[in-house]
Design a protein around this nucleic acid. Structure first.
Lengths: 143, 143
DNA sequence: GTTGACCTTCCAACCGTCGGAAGGTCCACC
DNA sequence: GGTGGACCTTCCGACGGTTGGAAGGTCAAC
């Protein structure tokens, strides 16, 4: 099948399939008589694996590791479990950070009556009057 | 003061201060006899406001709005509260997504005995045997 | 006069996804 | 045989926000 059908079957867009090929996450696809990429069921299976891994928040690097283990019939499930558990821990850490932000902001919003006057505890909080600050891992804040 | 001192005083790196100036988040700094940027207490105050906002997960765009309101003495605190509340909602949405991911992955990891054998429910789950999938907002997965 | 800390600008990278340009190919329909 | 539209190709850019480095100018102390 061609890339469009593989995209529909796997849930990974054609753009991303090409991208994943370029970065070596999926093997280079065979080409037909024209220069079109050609895919089979196994390729779609792999793409679907990638898609689900992304849905669970794994980074490309981690997915690379998972794919390697996936195709290794002599793998140790302990290694897989370690990756998964580490990722769960990262997710929970990120959740804690976001929760801290939400809680802090919630407190500030609660202190603001929203009456329409200029006086605003939220802005005061952002100024530095309070705000314990969640101190997120550098980079990537909101969604 | 020069950019380095402003950076230390505000918690915003010199790199980022220049960047914020370029994108118009902070006004263009005055320059001394040399071409060095010059900052005063108000500038640092503003930078600190930005820093705290970032720590609470506000996007640059939102911070732009907040800064505008901050410097508007006739602002309505209702508008500020609306922005803050919307952001809290976004944060909580993101938290829910991450929590779904963590829960799903946790279940898979629980089903894996990690005994060292190749058989692995986690990989099976990623293949598509189960995985309800958290379906995150497109992009930006882990942290 | 030299060292080193500071400043300047510019360019590129990280991550994952998407948009669009400019062109080639396939297939159905007329 | 021609035309249209859906599909494919490659390439180059953007979005979040932050960081790294290069290559150079400036200022202080020693």
């Amino acid at each position: 099948m061609r890339i469009g059908e593989a995209a529909r079957a796997s849930g990974v867009s054609a753009k991303m399939i090409r991208h994943y090929e370029e970065i070596g996450l999926v093997p280079r696809a065979g080409r037909g008589s024209n220069a079109y990429r050609d895919y089979d069921g196994a390729d779609v299976h792999r793409l679907r694996f990638i898609r689900r891994s992304r849905d669970l928040g794994f980074s490309i690097g981690r997915i690379r590791d998972l794919l390697r283990l996936w195709s290794d019939t002599e793998r140790s499930n302990a290694e897989v479990k370690a990756i998964a558990s580490a990722h769960v821990a990262e997710l929970e850490h990120r959740i804690d950070q976001l929760r801290d932000m939400a809680r802090t902001l919630h407190h500030l919003a609660d202190a603001c009556d929203g009456s329409g006057r200029p006086d605003c505890p939220i802005l005061k909080g952002l100024e530095g009057k309070q705000v314990p600050a969640a101190s997120p891992s550098p980079g990537e804040p909101p969604g």
